[in-house]
Amino acid sequence: MKIWRELLILVLVFGLIWLAFTWRPLSLPDSDFNLSSEREEDLAELILDDIKNQYEFYDDSITNMLLSPITSRLLDSLNPKKYEYRFHLIDSSGEINAFATIDGHIYVFSGLLKFVDNPEQLAGILAHEIGHHENGDLVDRLMKELGLSVLLAVMTGGDAVMVSEISKILISTGFDRKQEREADEFAYNLMIKSQINPARLAHFFTKLKAEEKSYPDNMEIIASHPNSKNRIEGALSHPLPKAFEEREFEIEWKKLIEEIL
């Protein structure tokens, strides 16, 4: 009967369109312009200045003393590197947070250093932030949010309003879940290469989750992931190589933090 043939055509069209777009999903074309590395460097400096206006920073000597044993181990196992990484320590005990801007800059709040139980946990978080850099998530996000105006800000030598807008976006807006998962994945692998057990990140998330109530507003970036349960499971179930053995940092973390911060 003709009517069944027409129904069949309709159902086929329905199925084929669905299949076709599932198989080859429409993706938005990438931006035609890119941030060149010199411009990224310039912009990163402008952002650093802007953040320095908002927060107190620790001296390089303190930052290095606390962070470099951890960061150097991570960076030694990271090969090749996209950036020369620079770590900044912000004096703000209330904020349990770390974030990355662009061009290899990573900012850590002193609250995070006080919160973690051991340097291995901190290494996991830093590895995650490095992952965002290496995966190109930050430039990607800037381009998506601001596009051409980013270029304009750099070329015009850094309009203050524009730069603070850019740093606001980098500090406050989240990544999408795929980027977060990929940065986690990156962190697990980098941790293993650096002889740190990825389960350390799970311990950190568990602690964060447990104390969430007592720190309601200050954990936005790290805790803004609604699926912290999945992340805990992900970190715990990440396969370890056969002969893996963790090499702990020889730092008495809590004591050191108490003395210095």
């Binding site: 329905f14 369109i17 669905w18 777009f21 599932t22 198989w23 429409l26 879940r177």
Partner: peptide, 19 residues
């Protein structure tokens, strides 16, 4: 429920828009 924005969902939405 925090599921992934899967390709099949995206394909479905595009199909729905076309329909």
């Amino acid at each position: 429920f925090d599921w992934e924005l899967s390709d099949s969902f995206k394909g479905y939405i595009i199909m729905a828009i076309i329909f």
